[in-house]
Design a protein around this nucleic acid. Structure first.
Lengths: 208, 208
DNA sequence: AACTATTTTAAACAGTTGTTTAACTTTTTA
DNA sequence: TAAAAAGTTAAACAACTGTTTAAAATAGTT
């Protein structure tokens, strides 16, 4: 059938890069075509429309985005251990994909945005058993009584925002790239202690 | 000279709304014109170009954005008090301007973005004396030894991200608007305790 | 080899983009 | 009130947008 899939793949590859760094409305079909070294018409030949190509890229990105969380929460470990490993892995992942959180948030906010398959995140999370594990730990008094939505938000805030705000922080604090990188290293340590201490307080003051 | 400034002001007003909710490349001059009920040509008549109008809006937004922090840090209060009041005020401000952090971060990331006057944030922060106050508190052992860049990032992460991620979280956690609002109320309390406890630890374990 | 199906191309499409023009109305000035 | 200035308008501009077309090139099949 197909000669080979290199053209289709080349487009996907370039589209991923361009879409994620510039957003859906921040780039054109021709820009993607040029980035992949192919003719403009081929984008629609293989993917029917800019929107459909975008939906493909977005869903894959969403999958990558939530992967770490689902994977780590699914392990057979104590909650504090999961937390430490998760933060470590998130910081490592985001060091290599710093534009991803901004991309997801932007496209989720865009009106007339895609229907948003969501990659079944909630179901996957439930399947890991993390919710039961948390509730059990809370009943045993090992974990602070906190709604799990808030727990999730605390984790994501402290992992995603530092990377999202890189350029803003550099400008606001008048620092350069290497200083930012240094700060992020320390930040990971702070965030880990911050969250672990808060969610799993020492026994001397277990209440409130 | 001018008949009155209502036209100029109408454009600014509409531009602010449209730019902040859709971003620079997410909207057109004609959209702003339509939103302010004026002729397209008047946008360039009053502001020379889309870019120049944008720069105006952006700088004002940046000012609003950093206002609370500078104002609260400039008060004559203890550090934990400042922290509690700041978080409270940020959550209140962002409830009314939830799109602002995403807007600032996006436009700071956009390549060929504006030169970014930055509204002299760093200088204003220095002038409040917050840095000296922190260093003094750290020497006294009242505050955790943490780089002030990391402290700033911790605060902003936990204030901005919850509002930025609203739609994403609603979709990921399968919740509706009222449930999100409820969660945010609790979140503010968590964030306050989280940060105050971490930055100003109880006397029994001042080290580390 | 000829025939069919797939892939690639340049060109065109209709609509939108930021911006400018030149004519007009209204306001201010003298 | 007449002249100058400021404000407003519809129309045009060239460049760009997503998408389609129809012809050309290539591959696979018999």
């Amino acid at each position: 059938m197909k000669k080979d899939n290199s053209t289709e793949e080349k487009i996907k590859q370039a589209a991923k890069e361009v879409f994620i760094s510039k957003g859906f409305s921040g780039c054109s079909t021709r820009e993607i075509a040029k980035a992949s070294g192919i003719n403009v018409a081929l984008v629609n030949y293989y993917f029917r429309s800019k929107s459909q190509l975008f939906a493909l890229i977005f869903n894959a990105a969403m999958e990558d985005f939530t992967n770490t969380m689902v994977e780590v929460f699914g392990r057979n470990l104590s909650l504090p251990e999961k937390m430490r490993i998760l933060i470590d892995k998130e910081y490592y992942f985001l060091s290599n994909h710093p534009e991803l959180p901004t991309f997801i948030i932007n496209e989720t906010n865009r009106e007339s945005g895609i229907s948003f398959a969501n990659a079944g995140f909630f179901e996957k999370m439930t399947k890991t058993g993390i919710f039961e594990q948390c509730i059990e730990a809370q009943q045993k008094g090992e974990m602070r009584k906190i709604d799990l939505r808030n727990m999730t938000l605390l984790i994501l805030s402290n992992c995603h925002y530092p990377f999202m705000s890189k350029n803003m922080m550099k400008s606001m604090l008048k620092i350069e790239d290497d200083q930012w990188k240094e700060a992020i290293e320390f930040h990971k340590i702070h965030v880990t202690e911050l969250l672990v201490n808060y969610l799993f307080p020492k026994n001397n003051e277990n209440e409130k």
